[in-house]
């Protein structure tokens, strides 16, 4: 009888692997959207770095610009409404924003692959899963003929722990459960041996125990291949479990960034603090939740100052008028930063 694997938490690997090769550096990325309500600065000066073997979490609510950031990186923003208007996306030293569509096609999938929230939309319902992986391999790898490609498709399914992969390559998406479909999408993503996987809320549609399996799988794949993972989520639990570094986004901007442990121990931006405080926990019983007042902002006609100011208990006149600079948070982590005028006052513990 099969027994479940009991092993140490995902935790361990994060501290263990020191930062590898710098794979991706995004500098001051800006993407604008034309909407009927006016111009939206969906991504408004986002910068970060990603190394091989590292997992970087981008956390934010709807409209924070977290998904638009990665769509811009890969130049798959919805056109013509969205325009990338500035910044650089340096992948191993080359600026992806200067590449044409033909060149980008060689990057997407082969160098940087994506896993989306809903596996249903990532798989073609009229082709078998094997066909879809072979098609991707044929486009990107071009080495080896039909048999070798099928063999590699089987291997990809095996890597994502799909049982009996030789049989499963003949399955259509509708013959698979939600969890298995998301694994198949994972197989499709890793089949061409990318260095970076961008995962946009890949577990949101999965059940709790299936989500646990999937996160473990991503961690194992990373350990085996040295992949870098860019994980987009709204869930601090996933960040705590999987990520080494974290960006917190609000209304198109990064408001806080740093090592996950530093941000959890010492959240500096009032938004991060409020967000962490409002999370319902399964491990203790809360009498009352600390709710954040107000609504996430409408992205057109944003205030010129700090975008969180209307909801922030510490905001003063300067906060409402001028956007705050990015400041270093004084704690043990050298790369913990936050954009807040009142960092010292609001962040009372130091």
């Amino acid at each position: 009888m099969t027994r479940p694997s009991r092993s140490t938490p995902l935790e361990e690997t994060r501290g263990a692997s020191a930062s590898g090769e710098l794979l991706l550096e995004v500098r001051d990325l800006r993407t604008h959207l034309d909407t009927k309500n006016g111009l939206v600065r969906a991504v408004d000066g986002v910068s970060f770095r990603l190394h091989s073997g590292e997992t970087l979490g981008i956390i934010g609510e709807s409209g924070s610009g977290k998904s638009m950031t990665v769509l811009s990186m890969l130049q798959v923003v919805p056109k013509p409404a969205a325009r990338i208007v500035g910044g650089e996306v340096l992948y191993r030293g080359q600026n992806l924003l200067e590449k044409n569509e033909r060149e980008m096609r060689r990057i997407r999938g082969r160098e940087i692959a994506m896993i989306l929230q809903d596996p249903q939309t990532s798989l073609n319902p009229v082709f078998t899963i094997g066909n879809q992986i072979v098609e991707a391999l044929r486009l990107h790898r071009r080495d080896g003929g039909g048999k070798a490609l099928v063999h590699r498709a089987v291997e990809a399914l095996r890597q994502v722990r799909i049982a009996a992969p030789e049989e499963r390559i003949r399955s259509y998406p509708h013959e698979m459960s939600g969890g298995m479909k998301q694994r198949a999408v994972g197989a499709l993503a890793i089949s061409c041996g990318p260095r970076i996987i961008v995962a946009d809320e890949p577990t949101t549609s999965l059940d709790v125990t299936i989500q646990a399996q999937y996160l473990r799988l991503l961690r194992d794949l990373q350990r085996e291949t040295g992949l870098a993972i860019l994980f987009i989520t709204h869930d601090f639990g996933i960040v705590a479990k999987l990520c080494r570094h974290l960006l917190v986004m609000y209304a198109g901007r990064v408001v806080e960034a740093g090592p996950v442990r530093a941000v959890f121990n010492n959240p500096a931006h009032p938004y991060t603090r409020a967000l962490l405080g409002s999370v319902v926990r399964a491990d203790t019983k809360a009498e009352r939740l600390e709710a954040i007042a107000g609504q996430p902002p409408a992205l057109w006609g944003l205030p010129s100052g700090c975008r969180f100011a209307p909801r922030c208990p510490h905001a003063d006149d300067r906060c409402r008028k001028e956007y705050p600079p990015q400041l270093r948070v004084r704690d043990e982590a050298s790369d913990h930063v936050a954009s807040c005028w009142r960092l010292e006052e609001s962040h009372g513990n130091r």
Partner: peptide, 25 residues
């Protein structure tokens, strides 16, 4: 027990024994 163990941690330092169930429902 498995369902509770699969809940996500509230802090990166939280360690708990994770019971990963084989297969699906």
């Amino acid at each position: 027990q498995a369902l509770l163990s699969a809940t996500l941690p509230a802090h990166p330092d939280e360690t708990k024994e994770e019971i990963v169930l084989p297969g699906e429902v």
